[in-house]
Simulated assay, not measured.
Amino acid sequence: MNDTINLISNHRSIRKFKNKKLTTEQIHTIIGASKQASTSSYVMAYTVIGITDETVKAKLKEVSGQEYVAENGHFFVFCADLNRIYQQASAIEQEEMQESIESTEQFLVSTVDTALVAQNTVIAAESMGLGTCFIGSLRNNIKRVNDILELPEHVVPLFGMAVGYPDENPDKKPRLPIEVVYHENKYNKDHQSQQELIDSFNEELKMYYQTRANNARTDTWSEQMVRKYKKAIRMDVTTFIKNKKLNKR
């Protein structure tokens, strides 16, 4: 395997960072690489907000409940952003654009664009010897995050990312087998064969949890997923996004 494949294949989330800030040059290098991600029709429907104000970091940590939102080398918030495009138009053109801007299709475009940029951010940062961790828990109170960051209409905070110098070396967490996530020509609806692969993966993950250096426990992927989806969370996100005039049609 080449260096890029090795880098991607050895990803692990870092949740403990050394007390050392990223330099402006490092941040610009990371974002410079990130924005070269593929983008639908060249719309580049995202904005990345770097958080340098410790007071703002503390507020975001309160929403997330995770210490590493505040304790890291740099914190990014990734936003789906159709406002920038909307502002390119005259008032009359904006009326003509409204149906498209507010559609589910364009919300998906902006979300995918943002995710692609974020993954590029991970790869760029890790190639520089830094660690990263996605922070979806900013959506625990998405309206408050919106207000803290003073986001305009047509902009939604999707997730954060902590980046910094690792102060831990966690074990690499197993992933589902290739045959489960990659199908050829059509969706594989052979539940039995798929479940056999997942059962084997569950045993591998159970062993990982029991033997890892920190937070050992007995658990499987299937058990986690059933627990997770039996309890609906962040149900306010739907109304919030529609109030931001996105995903309405």
Rank of each mutant, 00 (worst) to 15 (best):
D3N: 15
T4M: 13
T4Q: 08
I5R: 08
N6T: 09
I8W: 15
H11L: 05
R12H: 14
K16T: 02
F17C: 02
K20N: 02
I31A: 04
S34N: 03
S34W: 05
T39W: 01
T39S: 08
S41G: 06
A45W: 02
Y46N: 04
Y46R: 01
T47G: 07
V48L: 02
V48R: 00
G50M: 13
G50H: 13
E54T: 10
T55K: 15
K57A: 02
K57M: 01
K59I: 01
L60R: 08
S64A: 07
G65F: 05
Y68V: 00
V69G: 05
V69M: 10
A70F: 13
E71L: 13
N72Q: 06
G73I: 01
H74V: 07
H74P: 03
F76K: 00
F76L: 00
V77C: 06
D81M: 09
L82K: 00
R84F: 14
Q88N: 11
A89I: 04
S90L: 12
S90H: 13
A91F: 15
M97D: 09
M97L: 15
Q98N: 08
Q98S: 08
Q98P: 03
E99S: 14
E99L: 14
S100V: 12
I101L: 09
S103P: 11
S103H: 12
E105C: 10
E105G: 08
F107Q: 01
T111N: 07
T111I: 02
T114N: 06
L116K: 06
L116T: 04
I123H: 12
A125R: 00
E126D: 08
E126A: 07
T132W: 06
T132F: 08
C133W: 13
I135S: 01
L138P: 03
R139G: 03
N140K: 06
N140Y: 04
N140E: 03
N141H: 07
K143H: 12
K143R: 10
D147N: 12
I148K: 07
E153V: 07
H154R: 05
V155S: 09
P157E: 02
P157M: 04
G160C: 05
M161G: 02
G164F: 00
G164K: 00
Y165V: 06
K172S: 11
P174N: 02
P177L: 05
P177I: 04
E179M: 05
E179G: 04
H183G: 05
K186R: 10
Y187T: 06
Y187F: 15
N188G: 09
K189F: 15
K189E: 13
D190Y: 15
S193A: 06
E196S: 11
E203Q: 11
E204R: 14
E204A: 09
L205H: 08
K206G: 14
Y209N: 10
T211E: 09
R212W: 07
R212L: 03
R212F: 08
R217D: 01
E223K: 15
E223R: 14
E223G: 12
Q224E: 10
M225V: 06
M225P: 03
Y229G: 01
K230H: 14
K230R: 12
K231E: 11
D236H: 07
D236T: 01
D236Q: 04
N243M: 07
K244V: 00
